[in-house]
Amino acid sequence: MAKKSTGQAPLSPAVLHILLALSTGERHGYGIMKQVEADSQGKVNMGPGTLYGSMARMMEAGLIRESAKRVDPEMDDERRIYYELTGAGRESLEAELGRYRGVVAVADGHVVEGPLAHDH
């Protein structure tokens, strides 16, 4: 049975990257990995163990779900399971991005005020 996510707790980097990768549409495991790699400009390399372990917990929390099993026309003729965001997943992503925006706004304020000036 899926547990309800509170959407309040900060997300782990892996979960955030997976949510971001799925925010533009449904993807299979390899597609998610490639999207995470592209989004992070090659800085995040997620292996299958991390990816599917995180996805298992995200499915349990109701953030993502399986959408379909079908062939990817850009790949071989093997059928793949696709995953997509749920409403709770989208809300959770928006809440996390809002939190990040808040932190960046505070950091920007500090830069404008000139934190180094206080050192003298």
Partner: peptide, 10 residues
């Protein structure tokens, strides 16, 4: 199954 496919794809 998905993990095996992903491994193979990589």
């Amino acid at each position: 199954e998905g993990m095996g496919q992903t491994f193979h794809d990589l």
